[in-house]
Structure formats: C-alpha cells, structure tokens
Amino acid sequence: MSKNKRLAVNIILVCNAIIISYLESFIPIPIPVPGIKLGLANIIILIAIEFLDLKDALFIMTVKCLIIALLTKGVVVLAFSLSGGILSVLGMWFVYHHFSRFFSIKGVSIIGALLHNTGQIGAAFLILKSSIIFYYLPVLLISALITGFITGTIGSAVIREISIKGILHDQNENR
C-alpha cells in the first residue's frame, strides 16, 4: 500500500474518531460522573490495533487528541488527554499482541480505559503537584471498567463485521 493511501486511511479514521468523540457527549450516561464518558472513539483505536500498525494507532490517537484539544477543550487539557491516550494505546497494543490468549477485545478495551484514566490522573498529579487528585482515581477506575466493557463489546462487534466484509483487508495484509 502506498504511503499516501495509508495516510488517507489514517486521516479518515481520525475524522471518525473526532466525530464519534464529539457526538457521544449527546448520549446520556445513566449515572453522570464528572469527567467520565463512554469513550466510543476508542473503537477506532481498537480497529487500528487490530488492522494497522502500532505507529498508526499512536498517530491516530495523537492527532485526535491534538485536534480535539485545539478545537474544543484548550491546550492545558491536551497534556491530560495525550498522556492518557498514549498510555492506553501502548497498553492495549502490548496486551493484544502478547497476551491475546488471555484477553478478548473487550478485555483489551477495559485495559485501555483503565490506563487512559490512570494516565490522565498521573498527568494531573505532575501538573498540579498535589496527591489529592489520586482520591479521584478509584472513581475513574470503576467507571473505566464499565465504559471499557461497553466500548469493547461494541468494538469487538465492529471488528468482526469489518473482518467479515473485508473492509480493511489490504491494510491487514500489509502489516
């Protein structure tokens, strides 16, 4: 696959991730907790982990975080989302490619959600230099279990459908 085609696929996936991320704010969460959302955009990262390279998955996450921070949340928030995002991609990739016998896509998604929230709190600790922020970690971790499971369930169904329809077939062959 040509470099431009790979870039085009990545750009389209980034756009999908941004739009899903934007629209999921309209989905009401049964028990609203500040700072918690479903993280449906993670489905796109799961797709990248399944069908593309680690480099592509990291690229999609980085560009997504950058653009969302620039357009909606502000530069300060970028540090939080980027640290959580990159940690979650690395963790999901490692678990998916080295422990796939023990973890399904749902498990990988839960690990990603846990790492994402941990990374965010870690960044907050470094920036604010206050351990008080760690009291919020259990809340985030419990919610990550639930949201990671939901996202993973939808993600595994999406990945199955994509495999059946052979949508990203040529990308998978080029890995």
Partner: peptide, 12 residues
C-alpha cells in the same frame, strides 16, 4: 477545564 481539573480536585 472545570470537569477535568477542578471537580476531581474538589472531590479529593
């Protein structure tokens, strides 16, 4: 900013 920084701190 409030949701990501202030509220977790207030909770803590």
């Amino acid at each position: 900013y409030v949701v990501i920084i202030i509220l977790p701190l207030l909770f803590g």
